[in-house]
Amino acid sequence: MSGQRRAWGWAAALRSGSTTPWQDWLNTADPGEADPFSSYLPGAQQLGLLRRANLAAEATGRKLPRATADRILAAGVTGRGRGDLPVAGDGEPQRFGPRPVDPDTLPEHEFLRVAAGLIADDIAAIEEAPPQRRGLVDRVRDARRPQEQPFVIVGVPWRARAMSAALAAQGLRPGGRGATAYLLADDLGTVVADAWTARAFDQGGPTWPEFVEIFATAGRLPPRADLPRMANAAVQRYGAAQVRVVLDPSALAAELGVASVPEPPRLGANAVDLVRRVGQPLGGMVPSEARPRLLRAALVGRLDGRGGPALTVPPGWETWLATQAERTHHEIAAAGYPVLGDLDRMLPGPLAADPVEPVAAEVLALALGLLLDPVRPPVKEAS
Score class of each variant (00 low, 15 high):
residue 2 S to N: 15
residue 3 G to P: 00
residue 14 L to G: 01
residue 19 T to D: 11
residue 23 Q to Y: 01
residue 26 L to T: 00
residue 29 A to S: 15
residue 30 D to E: 13
residue 36 P to V: 14
residue 50 L to F: 02
residue 53 A to I: 07
residue 56 A to S: 13
residue 68 T to K: 00
residue 77 V to G: 05
residue 86 P to V: 06
residue 86 P to K: 10
residue 87 V to A: 07
residue 89 G to V: 06
residue 89 G to C: 04
residue 94 Q to G: 00
residue 98 P to A: 01
residue 102 D to F: 05
residue 109 H to I: 13
residue 109 H to A: 07
residue 110 E to N: 11
residue 114 V to L: 03
residue 116 A to T: 02
residue 117 G to D: 05
residue 117 G to H: 06
residue 118 L to M: 11
residue 118 L to S: 03
residue 120 A to K: 03
residue 123 I to F: 04
residue 124 A to K: 02
residue 128 E to H: 01
residue 129 A to T: 10
residue 130 P to N: 01
residue 130 P to Y: 06
residue 136 L to N: 01
residue 137 V to T: 12
residue 140 V to R: 11
residue 140 V to F: 03
residue 144 R to Q: 08
residue 145 R to G: 01
residue 146 P to Y: 02
residue 146 P to F: 07
residue 152 V to T: 12
residue 155 G to P: 08
residue 158 W to I: 04
residue 158 W to Y: 15
residue 159 R to K: 05
residue 165 A to D: 15
residue 167 L to R: 09
residue 167 L to K: 08
residue 168 A to T: 13
residue 168 A to M: 07
residue 176 G to N: 05
residue 181 A to S: 11
residue 181 A to L: 05
residue 190 T to R: 14
residue 190 T to A: 13
residue 192 V to D: 07
residue 199 R to F: 01
residue 203 Q to H: 14
residue 205 G to R: 11
residue 216 A to P: 06
residue 218 A to F: 07
residue 221 L to Y: 08
residue 222 P to A: 04
residue 228 P to G: 12
residue 229 R to E: 15
residue 229 R to Y: 11
residue 230 M to D: 12
residue 230 M to S: 10
residue 231 A to V: 08
residue 241 A to V: 02
residue 241 A to K: 13
residue 246 V to H: 03
residue 246 V to D: 10
residue 249 P to W: 04
residue 249 P to M: 05
residue 249 P to T: 00
residue 257 G to K: 02
residue 262 P to S: 10
residue 263 E to H: 12
residue 264 P to G: 09
residue 268 G to I: 11
residue 269 A to M: 06
residue 272 V to A: 09
residue 273 D to V: 12
residue 273 D to T: 04
residue 275 V to Q: 09
residue 275 V to F: 04
residue 284 G to T: 06
residue 293 R to Q: 14
residue 304 D to H: 11
residue 305 G to H: 07
residue 305 G to K: 08
residue 308 G to W: 10
residue 310 A to C: 00
residue 311 L to G: 03
residue 326 E to V: 09
residue 333 A to P: 01
residue 334 A to N: 13
residue 334 A to R: 15
residue 336 G to L: 07
residue 341 G to Q: 12
residue 344 D to I: 03
residue 346 M to G: 15
residue 347 L to C: 08
residue 351 L to R: 15
residue 352 A to D: 04
residue 354 D to G: 00
residue 355 P to M: 12
residue 358 P to M: 02
residue 362 E to C: 05
residue 364 L to T: 13
residue 371 L to G: 07
residue 372 L to A: 13
residue 379 V to R: 15
residue 380 K to G: 01
residue 382 A to D: 10
